[in-house]
Nucleic acid binder design. Structure first.
Length: 468
RNA sequence: GCCCCUGUGGCCAAGUUGGUAAGGCAGCGGACUUUUAAUCCGACGAUCGCCGGUUCGAGUCCGGCCGGGGGCACCA
């Protein structure tokens, strides 16, 4: 057993070498000595001469190892695919012109005890890709690319918001009352305090407390947890960006969203045109604005609204396949009709505005449409990208909305909200006019990366544990 | 939770109307000083997800269970 060093002095990344030597003539040997490190991904031994392919986080480069000059040549040839090694030697190009690093010194940094997957086909079993992401990242270039893109997208989002004077904050993930969204929470227990706590389903109510506290522009990028099914669009834990901007309304937030998404697309992809599900999509601002009622009319031919007799709403809901429950009021019926008949058919980025108050317990009443709120969702490629509104800041109205929710909860709706007395007390101190936004980062990345399953943008998606 | 599809050696992957498990990569042994998924030769490696059933005979058919994928429902 050879001794494995505790550190390795690397002076170049593979990417730096590739970039700086793109024009090397075939057969050249430079006098530049570099040391690099990474995983041995391919190997071609030809008797007295061996070639390898070394990969690090920046790329791949060929290793050139003649028996005459390579120390421990036989041992070098016996390396396993997947072994980590450090290599020092000159930069050169082979007779065929392949940029290489000659192996003048080398050292094993870690041995692999398990064989890597087929070097050409990679892993086809998606289960293995998700469970053994550490392998997937080496053998599936698109996976690596997608997660790099995700990292940059989050970083650019932070820069975008900080440039606009937003500050990043962190609020509780363990909450005594789950609030800020309509969803089933995970429950847990704190032993020392002997209290039940919930993993947050949204940071919303805490962030608005901060606006009340005088932080005029706040955002949080963090994990939220919802105890629901998994699908190509849902993972039980996912990353949410929420932001609150004092003195702004939902119109300001719309501009912010379309500007942000266009910015991300240009920075990450160099274009606003993305391909998704084999279809093109233009993310360039400005995006279309349309009210929920207008879209229902466009897609069903029926001009309905909150004042439409409820029997007519029920008839239309039934026609588009809604499973109607007795508790559904007109607002819920409109939302259900929209979701059944419209949402999946909206392709180009669209701000769907003016949701009924009945289904928007935290949104402020619309300034000139009674019964509706100043809320919008952005729909892109038939999927919801974000949810935003002019924040409800009237404590009395908020209490009555909470109580309506509590009523639904008592009637058996596990996703309905509970009354949050502390939040109501905070509102009593005055929340200025505020625009708020929640964006699912995972879905945003799916859009930018052009992948159709959330598991391809979550490094370790939730799966049933393996049995060993 | 419901429906459909799927599960073959470490990885990829054939397997037709049920007849007793191709091939490739990796690993092992050998040849080879400019390869590019190197090539060539050799030996090895599989209770075909698990349990049960039908049959003279099951990877192939049937039932149940487990894992995974997709769709529906729910949500972002």
């Amino acid at each position: 057993m050879t001794s494995i060093p505790y550190r390795y002095d690397r002076d170049h990344s593979v990417g730096q070498i590739v970039e700086a030597n793109s024009d090397l003539e075939p057969g050249t040997e430079t006098d530049q000595v570099v040391s690099i490190a990474g995983r041995l991904m391919l190997r071609r031994v030809q008797g007295k001469l061996a070639f390898g392919t070394l990969q690090d986080s920046s790329g791949r480069v060929q290793l050139f190892a003649p028996s005459k000059t390579t120390p421990d040549f036989d041992r070098f040839c016996a390396l396993n695919l997947g072994d980590w090694i450090g290599v020092k030697g000159i930069i050169m190009a082979t007779r065929r012109g392949e940029l290489s690093v000659r192996v003048d010194e080398w050292v094993v940094l870690a041995e692999t005890q398990r064989p890597f997957p087929d070097k050409w086909h990679g892993i086809s079993d998606v289960d293995t890709r998700y469970r053994q992401r550490y392998v997937d990242l080496w053998v599936t270039p698109e996976a690596r690319r997608t997660f790099l893109l995700r990292s940059k997208a989050v970083s650019l989002t932070r820069r975008f918001l900080e440039d606009r004077d937003f500050i990043e904050v962190e609020t509780p993930m363990l909450q005594p009352l789950p609030g800020g969204a309509l969803a089933k929470p995970f429950e847990t227990h704190h032993n020392a305090l002997d209290i039940d706590l919930y993993l947050r389903i949204a940071p919303e109510l805490y962030l608005k407390r901060l606006t009340i506290g005088g932080f005029e522009r706040v955002f949080e990028i963090g994990r939220v947890f919802r105890n629901e099914g998994v699908s190509t669009r849902h993972n039980p834990e996912f990353t949410m960006l929420e932001l609150y901007q004092a003195y702004a309304d939902f119109g300001d937030i719309m501009e912010l969203v379309e500007t942000l998404v266009e910015y991300l697309a240009r920075e990450l992809l160099g274009t606003t045109i993305v391909e998704f599900g084999g279809r093109e999509l233009d993310l360039a601002a400005p995006w279309r604005r349309a009210t929920l009622d207008e879209l229902i009319a466009q897609h069903t031919g029926e001009h309905v609204h909150l004042e439409t007799p409820i029997d007519e709403l029920r008839t239309l809901a039934e026609r588009v396949g809604v499973d109607i429950k007795a508790s559904y009021g007109p607002g819920k019926l409109l939302l259900e009709i929209y979701e059944a008949a419209v949402e999946a058919n909206v392709w180009e980025p669209t701000f769907v505005t003016d949701y009924p108050s009945e289904v928007s317990p935290l949104s402020r009443e619309h300034r000139d449409r009674p019964g509706y709120t100043e809320r919008f969702e952005a729909i892109v490629a038939g999927r919801e990208l974000c949810n935003a509104f002019s924040e409800l800041n009237d404590p009395t109205e908020q209490r009555s909305r909470f109580e309506d929710q509590a009523g639904l909860r008592d009637a058996g709706d596990e996703e309905a909200m509970v009354v949050d007395e502390d939040y109501l007390r905070a509102l009593d101190f005055g929340l200025p006019p505020t625009g708020g936004l929640g964006i699912g980062i995972d879905r945003l990345v799916m859009l930018l990366a052009g992948v159709e399953s959330i598991r391809d943008v979550v490094l370790f998606p939730t799966l049933r544990p393996e049995t060993f």
